[in-house]
């Protein structure tokens, strides 16, 4: 029923020259009903996510937990009581902000960990088989008499120039010969 209504709208041609802001309704009342309907009463308020709106209580972080989190983040412990309560306050409001997801029923939902091609076709294309490795097998040779072992023919070794001919220490500010220097003194 609704579908038909839309079709009839699409079939009607509104000449561009008659498209004037003042006379919109006269030309195509039905069409604007669709827009008015879509943009009618707001469906929710994003403000609800802020502290005042949501009623569920967030997990509370203790000062001990805060110190553990700072250590995990390789950040120094709070300098004083002020900084500690500021950090705790921010964490509390951040956690409050994300509480809404905890009430969602997600039983049986597969987590979306990353956006990649999850189709069967892509899975098959990425499969490692004997055939897909044939080229590598072909470039192997057996060497040795008493201890027979497999190696790649030297002529087929991968090009490593671009990957390996750089100086890992070029951007280090503290170094000694070929070593990075870290001073762990307390």
């Amino acid at each position: 029923m609704r579908h038909q209504a839309f079709r009839s709208i699409r079939a009607r041609i509104v000449p561009r020259s008659s498209y004037s802001v003042l006379h919109l309704r006269e030309y195509s009342g039905n069409e604007y009903d669709v827009i008015d309907k879509a943009l009618g009463e707001p469906s929710w308020s994003a403000q609800d996510l802020l502290s005042s709106g949501v009623s569920t209580t967030a997990d509370e972080i203790t000062p001990t937990q805060l110190r553990k989190l700072l250590r995990l983040s390789a950040l120094p412990p709070p300098k004083d009581q002020d900084e500690e309560s500021r950090l705790l306050g921010t964490l509390a409001s951040q956690l409050h902000f994300v509480q809404a997801i905890r009430n969602v029923d997600t039983i049986g939902v597969r987590p979306l960990r990353s956006l990649r091609d999850e189709s069967d076709e892509a899975g098959a294309a990425a499969e490692i088989t004997k055939d897909s490795l044939q080229e590598n097998f072909d470039s192997e040779e057996r060497i040795g008499k008493h201890y027979v072992r497999i190696r790649r023919r030297p002529s087929t070794l991968a090009e490593t120039k671009e990957a390996e001919d750089w100086d890992p220490l070029q951007c280090a500010t503290r170094k000694s010969n070929r070593f990075f220097v870290v001073n762990g003194a307390k």
């Binding site: 250590r71 500010t173 001073n183």
Partner: peptide, 19 residues
């Protein structure tokens, strides 16, 4: 350590390396 701005002095403070 490998690149980037590094603070002066020892690399450990408050018992946490690089903090």
């Amino acid at each position: 350590v490998r690149y980037g701005t590094r603070s002066s002095g020892p690399d450990t403070s408050g018992g946490v390396l690089f903090s």
